[in-house]
Write a protein that binds this DNA or RNA. Structure first.
Length: 273
DNA sequence: TCCTATGTTGTATG
DNA sequence: ACATACAACATAGG
């Protein structure tokens, strides 16, 4: 489920636990989400630690904590395809798929992920780990310039633009639905080779990447609702999975096909090859 | 039963 | 070394 804005939404769900001590930690150490982490060490070091702050970048979240002995701890979570964070009562009994639970006095912070494409990362030390600092600059930051975009498209010249937009090394946080939303707004066909975009199209693409990211963060990422809000009905998002769905701009039928290994939805009336 | 799924990574090939 | 394409991971729900 989670792309840029959904990750931000889930990150904020754990805000209730910031500034609070972790009384104990429940893990399923053999779960696939701990493939890159020693779950036993993580559980031992987070027990008695205090959660200090959190951030989101790309599709990852970082929770900073201070161990009982004062050491700085860094907990990373990637939600994969089906991961979620939620807050439960302190007595929460972990169910299948609840891979990591930070139990505090007044609540339990739960990471659940049935499909287990998500990952938990852990680091101890004064400096932020590479898995956090190596994340590419946000598409809403000045570093994401038209020049940088142009260079990247040229390098991936023969790949369909849809597949290129999913590359996290340049478009951190963009996922399947955001990529389709961006191309639909920019009126660019998802099969267009990345190297075939004109300077004007590149400029439009750049503008719409920022537009979709900014507004998704505003609508979904900043929401406080207990269930995640959807974008408004004039976004492609609301229509992309409906059989016989119509383009909100042209009212013509939408099309779904696999491009770059992912189901892609577009409006043939406004996105031409 | 069969198909799909808002993601990443390893591997083969050019 | 770099670009490109695709299978594999694991599970639930329609």
């Amino acid at each position: 489920m989670p792309e840029l804005a959904e990750v931000e939404y889930f990150r904020r769900r754990w805000n209730a636990g910031l500034g609070q001590r972790v009384a104990h930690v429940l893990v399923h150490p053999k779960a696939g989400v701990f493939k890159k982490t020693d779950a036993t060490t993580l559980a031992a070091r987070l027990t008695g630690a205090t959660l200090d702050a959190s951030e989101a970048a790309a599709k990852q979240m970082l929770f900073r904590a201070t161990a009982a002995d004062g050491a700085p701890l860094w907990l990373g979570i990637h939600l994969g395809m089906t991961g979620e964070l939620f807050v439960a009562p302190a007595g929460h009994a972990p169910r299948k798929g609840d891979h990591l639970v930070l139990v505090q006095r007044d609540r339990a912070l739960v990471f659940t992920d049935p499909r287990m494409f998500g990952r938990v990362l852990f680091h101890e030390g004064p400096d932020a780990p590479a898995w956090w600092t190596d994340i590419a600059p946000a598409v809403t930051s000045p570093a994401f310039s038209i020049g940088a975009l142009t260079v990247f498209l040229a390098r991936r010249a023969r790949t369909p633009i849809k597949a290129v937009l999913l590359m996290q090394e340049r478009f951190p946080g963009i996922g399947n639905w955001m990529a389709d939303e961006i191309l639909w707004r920019a009126a660019i066909h998802p099969r267009r080779p990345a190297g075939s975009l004109s300077p004007d199209e590149t400029k439009t693409l750049h503008r719409e990447i920022r537009h979709v990211a900014t507004h998704a963060l505003r609508i979904i990422g900043r929401a406080n609702a207990p269930t995640m809000p959807d974008p408004p009905p004039d976004w492609l998002f609301q229509h992309r999975w409906t059989d016989g769905g119509l383009c909100p701009k042209t009212k013509a039928p939408l099309v779904r096909e696999e491009i770059g290994g992912r189901t892609t939805c577009w409006s043939p009336a406004r996105q031409k090859l």
